[in-house]
Design a protein around this nucleic acid. Structure first.
Lengths: 198, 198
DNA sequence: CAAGTTTTGTACCGATCGATCCATAACATT
DNA sequence: AATGTTATGGATCGATCGGTACAAAACTTG
């Protein structure tokens, strides 16, 4: 019994997410968010409490879609553990190459947020920590599986290998933002995989 | 034949650098820079053309000190190539642990700047690219040397290994900003080194 | 169709942004 | 000591920041 929304909240959230992704939190103004979402200020502030609240929801949306997709690859029982990690690296490389081809910002919103906000935004830091813990847990399980199926021969602690893989992905995203092309990212991934199969 | 400066430009530059390092470019206000340097606005704008100019000089100062120190370790002919790279990782771990103990911001200004500015600040991006090229060139030379002295047994292309090492360092810095402690960083470095000695 | 409720567009808020102006202070030179 | 030059502190600039107030618009329900 009231005036209905003229926009799709999910689409607005997605547009806001991409803006934060490309420009960062501080460099994104509320005006930018209006233009990206196509909404007026009132609609944004009526739907979301504040710029920061919108950011948190955008970050949650990002984590939800990205990490879920990546973990699905890691849980694909048809492939060996090493091949699943190889596929994960492939997703990262493809994602960076794709965004580059589309002329959009590179990198990853969680990486960017870790750098820009983690130190002074405990709420964002908490979201990132939980995401990292989730990713590490799955990576660790995959590595232990790989030890059983023989595709991962490193004798290092599975947790250490998991953290290494996670760091390597971050390093690849950084390299991408620093100008590295697809072939470079692929070669970094290949060398990283060597550490698992020594 | 004029009034002399009441401050040391180098010290001011250093203070500004640490502020940008800890807070990022956008989140650092000119007021922050006044407080960090102890200077008034007039002195800052009289000495540096703008906030952005001050940032560029701060970034150059950072690159100059950090990369020079790191490359010195890589060129220490007393150690094997692999040990030099191990020492480089050690520098990174020590630096992160030290800053953590001092309660200062973590990470690395070049990493932070790559994430925050590289996409929309071509001048900063150029400085970062030149720095990366310089680091990669030295890393590559060390790796080729390691192939000769037997401390690096990977058959991968030396350039690929160099880019991997560079990415691994970035990944370690990211992990540190994400909350990883010293032991975690050390384990990541150890696994990364495995890739060189397979 | 009238009443009630929410959304929307617009104007606007105080605060802060980066940057500048200007009078005064502090020196070197003559 | 007088003059010239630069540095400094404080006031202030227009623009933009995130956020809000308010009235008109658009709907549901009775």
């Amino acid at each position: 019994m009231a005036r209905p929304r003229m926009f799709d909240e999910e689409r607005a959230l997605d547009a806001a997410m991409h803006t934060f992704w490309e420009k960062g939190y501080e460099a994104t103004s509320t005006q930018d968010l209006c233009e990206a979402t196509g909404l007026g200020r009132s609609s944004i502030y009526n739907t979301f409490k504040s710029k920061h609240d919108l950011f948190e929801r955008a970050l949650a949306h990002y984590i939800d879609t990205m990490t879920t997709a990546q973990l699905a690859v890691l849980e694909d029982a048809r492939q060996s553990a090493a091949d699943r990690i190889r596929a994960l690296f492939g997703m990262v490389v493809d994602g960076e190459a794709e965004r580059r081809a589309e002329g959009r910002g590179l990198g990853c919103l969680t990486v960017n947020t870790t750098v820009e906000l983690a130190a002074r935004d405990s709420r964002a830091a908490g979201m990132l920590e939980r995401d990292t813990a989730r990713r590490l847990a799955v990576l660790r399980a995959v590595i232990e599986e790989g030890r059983r199926d023989g595709s991962i021969t490193s004798q290092r602690d599975a947790g250490a290998l998991a953290r290494f893989i996670n760091a390597a992905i971050g390093g690849m995203r950084l390299s991408s933002q620093g100008g590295a092309d697809r072939a470079t990212l692929e070669s970094i991934a290949e060398v990283a995989l060597d550490a698992l199969t020594r």
